[in-house]
């Protein structure tokens, strides 16, 4: 697998570290019934067999956090974007 970093170009897998599902939405606030929203956010995963949006970090390169569209059944990568456009680089 090679990932096409928007800042560095196509680079080998060894330069990247994986975080996981990028489609999760962090709940806002802490209300009486938000406990299950929080435990779902932290622990429950869709875990699809097929297209998956995921966070990778180009740790051995520019350091940017990326959102990679990748198929978990074929490992085919469809698209790569900066997780926060306009804020590449280490910080």
């Amino acid at each position: 697998m090679r990932i096409d970093c928007p800042l560095c170009g196509e680079r080998p897998l060894e330069e990247f570290t994986y975080r996981g599902d990028a489609s999760l939405k962090r709940p806002t606030g802490a209300t009486a019934d938000s406990q299950s929203a929080w435990s779902d956010y932290v622990y429950i995963r869709e875990n699809p067999k097929g297209p998956h949006k995921e966070h990778w970090r180009h740790a051995g390169g520019c350091g940017a956090w990326l959102v990679v569209g990748r198929n978990t059944a074929t490992h085919e990568i469809s698209d790569v974007k900066l997780a926060r456009p306009g804020r590449g680089g280490m910080r």
């Binding site: 080998p12 897998l13 996981g20 978990t72 059944a73 074929t74 490992h75």
Partner: peptide, 13 residues
């Protein structure tokens, strides 16, 4: 290997 996968196929690194 370190990332979600259903492919019974390992990577070279």
């Amino acid at each position: 290997d370190g990332y979600n996968s259903y492919a019974q196929r390992g990577n070279l690194p």
